[in-house]
């Protein structure tokens, strides 16, 4: 038996919105410690890794570890019926072929339940080596979304370079070029959410497809902060930590000069 109840049910909805552009179907691996998901997009350019800790739920019971194969677009449709303040309960039997979603309004005056059929999905687990990233930038998640959306009007590829002057995002396309530089402001009085922290061992300059970064940025409603971790010739890690709940990480293969 698996049962998980979350008062802030909206979090589940936001997690699925942040995954469904990249992943159509995936296994939610449930165990006594929580829920994990790891999946690459269909072109194997990016990888999403979700962790939701058992302690992050108001009630969490998992008698047997198992994968729950779910079509994320169906799950997203079901979650559209979940209101902002609803309490969400997920349930699945050990040998069942479905997952049950229950949405309860805060005042307990409306209860909805939905059942989704589970799917058999080949498990994909990738060994992601521990990487000692040469540069880590932590900034406002909404500001990162803004940068990705704004620069994508000019081109498809962004060059991210971290140097002593800050982190520069550059795009060039047929229309022209654009640069946005964000500087470390930890020594000023900037409020917590707008802080930019740059931790650099050595300068890094890498190219990435903006299309994927824009999809990753759909995770911004989950949390205030995002970290970008870079090293030469290795995938970029874009990490959204969700306080007291877990994290959503995205890995993106760089574009390499031909």
């Amino acid at each position: 038996m698996f049962e998980a109840r979350l008062t802030k049910g909206e979090l589940i909805k936001k997690v699925i919105e942040a995954l469904k552009d990249l992943v159509t179907e995936a296994n939610f691996d449930i165990s006594a410690t929580g829920i994990q998901l790891q999946a690459m997009d269909s072109s194997h350019v990016s990888l999403c890794a979700l962790q939701m800790k058992a302690e992050g739920f108001d009630h969490f019971r998992c008698d047997r570890s198992m994968p729950l194969g779910i079509n994320l677009s169906s799950m997203s449709k079901v979650l559209k019926c979940c209101n902002k303040d609803d309490i969400v309960t997920l349930k699945a039997e050990d040998d069942g072929d479905s997952i049950n979603f229950m949405f309860e309004s805060k005042d307990q005056d409306k209860i909805s339940d939905f059942e989704l059929k589970l799917m058999d999905i080949d498990s994909e687990h990738f060994g992601i080596p521990d990487t000692d990233y040469k540069a880590t930038v932590t900034m406002s998640a909404s500001e990162f979304t803004r940068i990705c959306n704004d620069l994508s009007i000019l081109g498809e590829t962004v060059a991210i370079s971290v140097g002593k002057d800050g982190v520069r995002f550059s795009v060039s396309g047929e229309m022209g070029t654009g640069n946005m530089t964000v500087r470390d402001n930890t020594s000023s009085d900037t409020k917590e959410a707008d802080r930019v922290e740059i931790d650099m061992e050595e300068p890094v300059n890498l190219n990435f497809a903006l299309r994927y970064l824009k999809s990753f940025a759909k995770a911004a409603p989950l949390t205030d902060r995002v970290s970008l971790c870079l090293s030469r010739d290795v995938p970029l890690l874009v990490k959204y930590e969700i306080p007291e709940f877990g994290s959503l990480s995205y890995y993106l293969a760089p574009k390499i000069d031909d």
């Binding site: 690459m40 072109s43 194997h44 350019v45 990016s46 990888l47 994909e124 687990h125 990738f126 060994g127 992601i128 080596p129 590829t157 190219n207 497809a209 290795v234 995938p235 890995y251 293969a253 760089p254 574009k255 390499i256 000069d257 031909d258």
Partner: peptide, 14 residues
């Protein structure tokens, strides 16, 4: 123009 790498070069399936 830079060419898109895929992740399989970096991460093996385990």
């Amino acid at each position: 123009t830079p060419v898109q790498n895929d992740l399989d070069e970096f991460y093996a399936m385990v």
